[in-house]
Design a protein around this nucleic acid. Structure first.
Lengths: 189, 189
DNA sequence: ATCCAACTGTGATCTACATCACAAACAACT
DNA sequence: AGTTGTTTGTGATGTAGATCACAGTTGGAT
């Protein structure tokens, strides 16, 4: 399917844009391709874009002082990702984003998003709902983190995204669950 | 300060509403007062409102099968709270909200929020930014949960909201940090 | 002032998970 | 096919924090 069509169907679920509006909407994006392992945002970078995944799988992650990695999100097709704190506040990135597989994305600058939101009321509506969903998902994950043990969290993740099992090395799944790769490996006993 | 003025200043930080628009905005809210300990949303309820805190302190929390409580948020003046999952999806509440102290709030129905967002572009803008901030804060907390030990998380919380120490029983602070009250108590050694 | 309920501190013990160390399996490139 | 790096499994040991039990303390209601 065409990038334009993918985005159109995604947006149509939430916002009603006529052809002219969607044309304007789509034209604000840039199509980009990345290879497996390529970095899109590195910690320390200035961040002025967010990314809508068309194909492949990205991860957004934080690396602490002991060089331990924590994964915030696996971004699959039709997911959005960036370092939103940096993007919204003009701070330097503390979250990095890179490619787990080859990937195609549509990238949108902060400036263009805000322009769209100004020009097209329904665009603002769309981005409001997108973040609402993200917020609810993030709270759910926080609760699961506090409430459930690793096994439970692992099964939850696999139930929700079975395709991850194929694509993503287990040490990355461990970094998402907030557990050591050794402990994750021992789960199958 | 008057409820109207508190809301006006809060909204003005993000959205530009003229007098007429703000009048419409404000009139959609209902002023409510609650006593310490009163429940605003109980798990299992239908949820059709969210709450803007004028004075006092609320908590939003989840209680698991073992009757253990986890606190999502302490809602202080100018904070918003609800069970947003339930509110957005029309599901029954899994998150409860009640009053840690006597409190005054402005409540806004889902319907009225959506009407405002339809009628006033800047209202939609406001609610988009409010959730953006919440989303970023929630991700930060998730990372801190995975990365830092209890002591670190406790100091972080106290640095950010020193007033909590006075108002909130320590067992509730423990429930926010995701730790037992005994462990929190032993932190001061 | 007194009573009851909610809150806080502290010891003893238990457990989920981390860390370290090493070996085996797998993939990728030349 | 062989070399190199990346990923996974598994044993041994260490530790942060949970849980249970009980005592002391605070605070609101009558």
């Amino acid at each position: 399917m065409q990038p334009k069509q993918i985005l159109r169907e995604h947006v149509a679920k939430i916002a009603k844009l006529n052809d002219e509006e969607f044309e304007n909407f789509f034209n604000r994006f840039e199509l980009r391709s990345y290879k497996k392992g390529q970095t899109i945002i590195a910690a320390g970078d200035s961040v002025d874009r967010e990314y809508f995944v068309l194909s492949g799988c990205l991860k957004s992650f934080y690396i602490n002082d002991d060089l331990k990695m924590f994964i915030l999100q696996f971004a699959m097709p039709t997911w959005w990702t960036s370092d939103y704190n940096a993007l919204y506040t003009n701070a330097k990135a503390t979250i990095s984003v890179d490619c787990i597989t080859d990937a195609e994305v549509l990238s949108l600058s902060n400036e263009n998003r805000e322009a769209l939101c100004r020009e097209i009321h329904q665009a603002e509506h769309f981005f409001r709902w997108r973040t609402n969903r993200g917020y609810v998902a993030s709270q759910k994950r926080l609760l699961s983190m506090m409430n459930n043990d690793v096994k439970h969290r692992y099964e939850e993740l696999m139930a929700q995204y079975p395709e991850l099992y194929q694509i993503v090395p287990k040490q990355l799944i461990a970094a998402y669950l907030g557990v050591s790769r050794e402990t994750l490996s021992r789960l199958h006993h």
